[in-house]
Amino acid sequence: MPVEPILSLKQVTKRFGGLTVADQVSFDVPQGSRMALIGPNGAGKTTLFNLMSGVYPLDGGSIWLEGRQIDGLPSRQRIGAGLSRSFQNIRLMPHLSVIENVMLGQHAKASGLGDLMTPILWQRAGRWRQMAIERLEAAGIDVHPDAEVSSLPYGVRKKIEVVRALMSSPSLLMLDEPAAGLNPRETAELSAFLKDVAADGVTLLVVEHDMSFVHDLCERTVVLNFGRLIYNGATRSVQDDAAVREAYLGSRRVAGDGGDRAA
């Protein structure tokens, strides 16, 4: 059955100086799917995320979200269009508390000067804060809402970032190496949590090096190498693909090696 793609990249191209970091990349992310974006270091995965979230303008091609062309939209309007993301290196606000970081994720849902200019706790009788606390609890994050984020363990901060990205009720959630630096138990928990998120109708696009995590979570995978798309298909057959094997050239990442990048 044909499923309407939620995200379409068409001939997306980006150059930095003489270096082409995204070379006519085209693929679709089907509605409701859990998709992985993998590739060797420097393949252009994070760049592609940055292009989708509007950090850089495109040099060519177009990006479509739910049938709407978004590559001309300013970066700040893409979250409102339904695209939300996390970052490779945790980028929580260091001087905001846990709950404030999560409530920042609701910014795109606040509308009008009334929502912006009156104290958050007055609005809807504190509903914003309550919603954030419920989300944290649903994700199994058991910390004091007023805690300093820098005092928390790495795995917890990583999860808070995912929760923050979810607060805008996105239709597409893009996660940049969510499992990097997590221990096996945390990785399994994260995978289960993300499956619940996807079950609620959120489409996932995940950059990840941990192949066992990818196999567990994502049914489809696209592979990038030197800014070019070299594979687009089922996750279970990605390791049998000749081009993919060559791209990794023996330096293929194996399960659990994310740990060394945590430092």
Partner: peptide
């Protein structure tokens, strides 16, 4: 306060 900490992430959060 979030702009103070990180302008880029604030933008992506819709600010």
């Amino acid at each position: 306060r979030s702009i103070h900490d990180d302008e880029l992430v604030s933008t992506i959060m819709g600010v």
